[in-house]
């Protein structure tokens, strides 16, 4: 199964390699994420999914290979862009083990996400300290945007609570809302369904579809096969750092190599992991 042919993908990964000392965590991986679609990266534990994510979002620098973002301002080589600039270029992410600002309120979390836009309106901070300029308008706009995403994630009534005091599922949703407040073109979600119950997973899938409808492309790492098969337009399968399959969900479901990798009947002697469905 080949990738769907579209004018320009939002993200191109070409021959990506990442070595940690002697270990090659990602080995010549290439794939594309199509614009306006949900692309999922799946694979057994230790397949290198999170490493790929960290390379795309600039937390690691690749040993070799290219990552190209076709964002608002043309093509951008992410592998040569410092971490905070990647986010400014329009790539937002969430973390496997939620990373909120627990001592700040939900609303503050969302305003921090709009830091660069707000900071630009402050006139080097001086005008803002003195209460001058267009800062007030900018802040009002930022609050409106935050409210929009709070509504979308059903957190509006918790806006003034500390992020750290929210229940687990709400913290997951808040992290997505915070990422969306950076106004990304590509949202990278690292196991967003981990630790959620079936009902919450279903709500999450709904939220992700809503984000796609809004025009943001999505790259997703997920263990929950139910979620992945349900919402993905396209799936990339990694195993032991290599890409073993790439295609639409139906094709992946039927792929021999994928089944082998998950059931551990391949040429490796890894202990068999639980069935594909419900692996969490």
């Amino acid at each position: 199964m080949s990738t769907p042919i579209l004018p320009t993908p939002i993200l191109e990964v070409r021959d990506l390699v990442m070595r940690f000392g002697g270990l090659t965590a990602v080995d010549r991986v290439s794939f594309e994420a199509a614009r306006g679609e949900i692309t999922a990266v799946i694979g057994p534990n230790g397949a290198g999914k999170t490493t790929v994510f960290n390379l795309i979002t600039g937390f690691y620098t690749p040993s070799a290979g290219e990552i190209l973002l076709h964002g608002r301002d043309g093509q951008r080589p992410l592998h040569a862009t410092p971490g905070h600039r990647i986010a400014q270029a329009g790539v937002a992410r969430t973390f496997q083990n939620i990373r909120l600002f627990p001592g700040m309120t939900v609303l503050e979390n969302l305003l921090v996400a709009q830091h660069n836009r707000l900071q630009a309106a402050t006139g080097f901070g001086i005008a803002a300290v003195l209460g001058l300029g267009g800062y007030r308008a900018a802040e009002r706009e930022a609050v409106e945007r935050a409210k929009h995403w709070l509504e979308a994630t059903r957190l509006l009534d918790r806006a003034d609570d500390a992020a750290g005091s929210l229940p687990y599922g709400a913290q997951r949703r808040l992290e997505i809302a915070r990422a969306m407040c950076t106004d990304p073109v590509l949202l990278c979600l690292d196991e967003p369904a981990a630790g959620l119950n079936p009902r919450e997973s279903e709500e999450l899938a709904e939220l992700i579809r809503l984000i796609r409808t809004g025009g943001c492309s999505i790259l997703l790492i997920e263990h929950d096969m139910g979620v992945v098969m349900n919402i993905s337009d396209h799936i990339v399968v990694l195993d032991h750092g290599k890409k073993i399959a790439d295609g639409i969900p139906a094709a992946i479901r039927a792929d021999e190599k994928v089944i082998a990798a998950y059931l551990g009947t391949g040429d490796d002697d890894e202990a068999p992991s639980p069935a594909v469905e419900g692996a969490a």
Binding site: F59, G83, F95, A113, N116
Partner: peptide, 13 residues
Amino acid sequence: REDEIACRALGIN
């Protein structure tokens, strides 16, 4: 102070 890594992911220098 709360989380430096999250700050970086949000585009803060």
